[in-house]
Amino acid sequence: MGMNTNSSSNSGDPEVMADINTTPLIDVMLVLLIMLIITIPIQLHAVNLDLPVGSPPPSSVLPDIVKIDIDAKSTVYWQGVALTAPQELETRMQELAAMPVRPEVHIRPDKAASYETFARVLSDTRRFGLNKVGVIGSEQFLE
């Protein structure tokens, strides 16, 4: 297959024909083409979904927002009023957890505040089931 000999030459030595046999290459290309043709229709199938139909909730109802600030001295402020004891924060969070519609909690720590204070406030919100929590003011950390 790879070599073709020609015995009609007068020299007595057979001539070597150095052509590349492209038949296996063509066979592989045809197999790949057939596999490609077979798999393309599989990718084009559509999936039918039954999406829920309904009206979006009214946008005029905004949730209440509770702002908790932590200053550079790690003092916790509830809506702008400084809290003197950690128990005071816990009692206010218990009151929020008892509400039928729980408000959003926005925590804004200062850049120089201790991480321990921030972690305690964040864990208290989780412990009392206040799941709508946002940390705001993070642009000050990009400096």
Rank of each mutant, 00 (worst) to 15 (best):
G2L: 12
N4S: 08
S7T: 14
S7P: 10
S8K: 13
S8T: 12
S8H: 09
S8F: 13
N10Y: 15
G12P: 12
D13T: 10
P14R: 04
E15P: 11
M17C: 03
A18M: 07
A18G: 01
A18S: 04
D19L: 09
D19I: 11
D19E: 11
I20G: 03
I20Q: 00
I20M: 06
N21K: 04
T22Q: 03
P24V: 07
L25N: 14
V28I: 13
V28C: 04
V28M: 10
M29H: 05
M29S: 12
V31H: 05
V31P: 06
I34P: 00
M35G: 08
L36D: 01
L36P: 03
I38T: 00
I38R: 02
P41W: 07
I42P: 00
I42D: 03
Q43G: 05
Q43R: 06
Q43W: 09
H45F: 09
H45S: 08
N48S: 12
L49I: 15
L49A: 13
D50E: 13
D50M: 12
P52W: 09
P52E: 15
V53A: 11
V53S: 12
V53N: 14
V53M: 11
G54L: 06
S55N: 11
S55E: 08
P57V: 10
P58V: 09
P58I: 03
S60F: 11
V61M: 07
L62D: 04
D64N: 08
I65L: 15
I65P: 03
V66N: 03
I68G: 06
D69F: 08
D71Y: 04
D71W: 06
A72C: 00
A72V: 07
K73T: 07
K73I: 04
K73P: 02
K73N: 13
T75F: 05
T75E: 01
V76K: 01
Y77W: 10
Y77N: 02
Y77H: 07
Q79S: 07
G80A: 07
V81S: 08
A82T: 11
A82G: 12
L83D: 06
L83V: 03
T84F: 06
A85N: 14
L89P: 03
T91E: 14
T91Y: 08
R92P: 00
M93H: 06
M93S: 02
Q94F: 14
L96I: 06
L96A: 05
L96H: 12
A97C: 10
A97W: 05
A98I: 10
M99L: 15
P100D: 13
R102G: 08
P103W: 13
E104L: 05
V105S: 02
H106A: 12
I107H: 00
I107Y: 07
I107M: 08
R108Q: 10
R108S: 13
R108P: 04
D110N: 10
A113T: 07
Y115C: 03
Y115P: 00
E116A: 10
F118D: 04
A119L: 11
R120I: 08
V121G: 03
R126V: 12
R126Q: 11
R126I: 12
R127W: 07
R127P: 03
F128A: 02
F128I: 00
G129M: 13
L130W: 05
V133Q: 09
V133F: 01
G134Q: 04
V135E: 01
I136Y: 00
I136V: 15
G137H: 05
S138W: 02
S138C: 10
S138Q: 04
E139N: 05
F141R: 04
L142D: 06
L142I: 08
E143L: 06
E143Q: 05
